[in-house]
Amino acid sequence: PTPPYLKWAESLHSLLDDQDGISLFRMFLQQEDCADLLDFWFACSGFRKLEPCDANEEKRLKLAKAIYRKYVLAGGGIVARQIKPATKSFIKDCIVRQQVDPAMFDQAQTEIQALMEDNTYPLFLKSDIYLEYT
């Protein structure tokens, strides 16, 4: 069978679908001081999985605010710097109007994913961390 670390080189999704791959990628991103990209990406996926229903409305709003405050709000963080202003406004509007849609972070996640695909993921595949692992 194909060893997992070779699968990681196939696509970002193959990498993010494997616990060991995620750990190694996180180590690399921490070195580059941008592990928030990965945390934000998973936070968006986790948020989308929370079904809207009366029982967890409060939790979803609290979580949306937490994601917004930690990653999106201008505080100089890498995620905030990479998300487009229009996308940030859209997320802010959803929170202000308390309309937390499961898809409200989708566009922001897509933008961060594109950055990882174009930048950090190819760098990771050429990094000492990955090469030593293989």
């Binding site: 993010l16 494997d18 616990q19 936070a43 968006c44 986790g46 979580l63 605010k65 937490a66």
Partner: peptide, 20 residues
């Protein structure tokens, strides 16, 4: 703030792939 961090952490973990 702690509980907000816990909530975020729980959310991030829920999206991670399970051990194969």
């Amino acid at each position: 703030i702690d509980s907000e961090d816990d909530l975020l952490q729980e959310c991030i973990s829920s999206a991670m792939p399970k051990k194969k």
